[in-house]
Design a protein around this nucleic acid. Structure first.
Lengths: 250, 250
DNA sequence: ATGTGGTGTTTGGTATACCAAGCGCTAAAG
DNA sequence: CTTTAGCGCTTGGTATACCAAACACCACAT
């Protein structure tokens, strides 16, 4: 193996991402992996306390919070505090509607722009799931389900479409995971998916768009009918925040 | 007028928005109202210089920059500087595609959710523009044109749809204004609009969606064919930024 | 007991000081 | 003249200090 390397192979280099970036990632993960809809959930964040916990100063922490605020995960009110935002039911429904718009356009683009080999990968994702096995392996199917929709966005080769959907997904992920098990949604879901795949394979642009849209709007209607947030403060409402005391009840 | 006021009328209060907010607005306006596609445009920003110009410290200025970076207007590279981003042609095309997805879904929602009175406002927007007058009053028509599309997003009553489109519009506004005058696009544009309005008035959901989508994709194709950014550095490309010297050539 | 004014503490907003990474410039070596 | 090592300045990143608003709490007066 003497002549194997004619040039020095250099390490890919990880310039030790900035604190701001790492803090942002850590905080975002902490928030998204946190059941904000539990009635006793602690929605208030403390800048200084967090900066101590993360071992950084307030500056990078505030930059992370700033970004999270822009993304809609958090809301800071001067002299009051930083609060994790709950989405109202209406907001959730709107986000699913937006999702439907994005994904149906993505399906459209796939039928005209993607190669057969790329389209083939869609069908492969469901090979292991026969009708009888879905309920038994619900967790796995749930993952495959999510991956399927993400794949559609990716195959559209429209980066901004994919990115917009990804940002959106962060907000809806908790709901999505919760609803997949209800009723026999999983079983009906896989039928929809097969239909979608076939429409795409046949390059039927309008049909693919329609099927994707209707599939997502089914989720929307399901959430509308079966999802209940009653009794939970919707932190989107100004009044609730305004009335909230600075510290948790002593 | 003795008993007019039984209670003291208090002023609505404007708590003098934070410096961060005001700096953000000012900076954003400066950037969007700036021809970033001129070949000699100064794309580099200097934190300290800007903070002096705005009369604030670096902290609120950096928070504004942070936000603008997240919105995609700006990119900061450590130890190099902050750069105003140009959109590549591909990015512009993708944004228009995304816009088509958003607005066609909005049209769909209008046909099912909006009242006749709301829909009527769409037609009113074009009352003053007869076929012969369009080219003569191009500026006015351009404004009405933009307002029309924004109105559709608003009437959808889907706040997140509207907001996503608004954010998008900031990025495309320069291009949109430039293309309206080319060819006889304005004349054909108004025909499309009338067709769209009629479809919505008839509550023809699928037709309205299709017409809106196709109308926007026409713009997309037009930009694809006639818009040329050749010779301009596309600051989205890493190499270009990496090769850029720290200061402008002396 | 109740209402009221003051006071201390908490909190996000802002300003500033310091750091290390990059880059240009220059001077010395060949 | 060309090359290169080194110095110094510029720049974004980070830490810290200080401020004013807001609220809770308490003492005091009624």
């Amino acid at each position: 193996m003497g002549e194997t390397h004619l040039e020095l192979v250099v390490a890919p280099i990880d310039p030790a991402t900035s604190l701001k970036q790492r803090t942002y990632v850590a905080l975002k993960q902490a928030i998204t992996g946190f059941n904000i809809y539990h009635k006793d959930a602690q929605l208030r964040l403390d800048e200084r306390q967090l900066s101590r916990q993360f071992g950084v100063s307030r500056t990078p922490l505030r930059e992370a919070l700033n970004r999270l605020e822009f993304e809609g995960f958090v809301r800071t009110i001067p002299r009051r505090g930083v609060f994790i935002l709950r989405k109202s039911k209406r907001e959730i429904l709107e986000m699913i509607t937006l999702w439907a718009a994005l994904e149906s356009m993505a399906a459209r683009l796939i039928t005209t722009d993607a190669g057969d080999d790329e389209i083939a990968t869609l069908r492969e994702m469901f090979l292991g799931f026969e009708d009888g096995q879905i309920t038994a392996r619900l967790d796995e199917y749930s993952d495959a389900n999510i991956a399927f929709h993400q794949r559609i966005l990716q195959l559209s080769k429209c980066a901004i479409l994919d990115k917009t959907a990804s940002d959106l997904f962060m907000h809806v992920r908790a709901i999505r995971a919760r609803t997949i098990g209800e009723g026999n949604r999983a079983a009906r879901s896989i039928v929809d998916h097969i239909d979608i795949i076939e429409a795409i394979e046949r390059r039927d642009t309008d049909l693919a768009e329609r099927l994707v849209r209707e599939h997502t709007l089914k989720l929307r209607d399901h959430v509308e009918q079966h999802f209940d947030l009653t009794g939970l403060a919707e932190s989107g409402a100004e009044d609730v925040l305004a009335a909230m005391p600075r510290k948790g009840a002593a």
